[in-house]
Amino acid sequence: MNASADQRLLAAARRGDVEAVRAALDDGARVEARDDELRSPLLLAALGDHVAVARLLVAAGADVNAQDARHDSPWLVTGVTGSVAMMRVLLTAEPGPDLGLRNRFGGISVIPAAERGHVAYVRAVLQETDIDVDHVNDLGWTALLEAVILGDGGPAHQKVVALLLAAGADRELADAHGTTALEHAERRGFAEIAALLRG
């Protein structure tokens, strides 16, 4: 094990330095090296949206499903950052992303993306994968519920709701308290989203 090369690889991945990543790998760095929070080089690249670094690491066999101490993985954080380019690089990995892998809230990547209003990501992940549009996290929320409950009701979240519905999201799925997305939208005064949910 070359600890020095591992540390250089982690630092280079964090800052998005492709040449330094390549040099560290050439010097014997482990593609699955971990930092103090158990983050891999690929996870650090994904967090920083360093797509070229991620492409190099994936080609070197990096694990797109490797989870850190917070249960984040390279694939899962694409839903947080909303990076379609990173999502597509990770989809080329062998083996590919585990679409059912859960974050610390029991969610999959489309749920934080819906919450944050990442329209392009939600569209891409629904079109380019067979991700479960009705996955329920530990809070009892689907992507549709999260888009309404934690969204701002604005244009981005309206588009996210429309995309989820078009992908077959079950509008009748209620939260742990029995409240549906429509009822949440009505309570929050999100008229446009409520209209979408009424169909």
Rank of each mutant, 00 (worst) to 15 (best):
A3W: 13
D6T: 09
A11P: 05
R14L: 15
R14S: 15
G16R: 06
E19Y: 08
R22P: 11
A24D: 01
L25W: 03
D26G: 12
D27P: 01
A33N: 05
D36M: 03
L38Q: 15
L38Y: 13
L43E: 11
G48R: 04
D49K: 12
H50E: 06
V51F: 08
A52H: 09
A54I: 02
R55T: 09
R55Y: 07
L56K: 11
L57D: 02
A59R: 11
A66D: 08
D68N: 12
R70K: 07
P74L: 01
L76Y: 03
V77A: 02
V84F: 12
V84C: 14
M86E: 08
R88M: 03
T92S: 08
T92R: 15
P95C: 07
G96R: 03
D98N: 05
G100S: 06
L101Q: 15
N103T: 09
S109K: 00
I111C: 10
A114Y: 01
E115S: 12
E115G: 02
R116G: 03
G117T: 12
H118C: 05
H118K: 12
R123E: 10
A124I: 01
A124V: 09
L126V: 10
D130K: 09
D132V: 01
D134G: 00
V136L: 04
N137V: 01
D138G: 12
L144D: 06
E146R: 08
E146V: 04
E146N: 09
E146M: 07
A147R: 00
V148K: 06
I149K: 10
I149W: 01
I149D: 06
G151N: 04
D152V: 02
D152N: 14
P155F: 01
P155E: 10
K159T: 09
V160R: 00
L164Y: 10
A167L: 09
G168R: 07
H177C: 14
H177Q: 15
H177G: 15
T179P: 02
T180Q: 00
A185L: 02
E186T: 10
R187S: 14
R188S: 12
F190I: 01
A191W: 04
I193F: 05
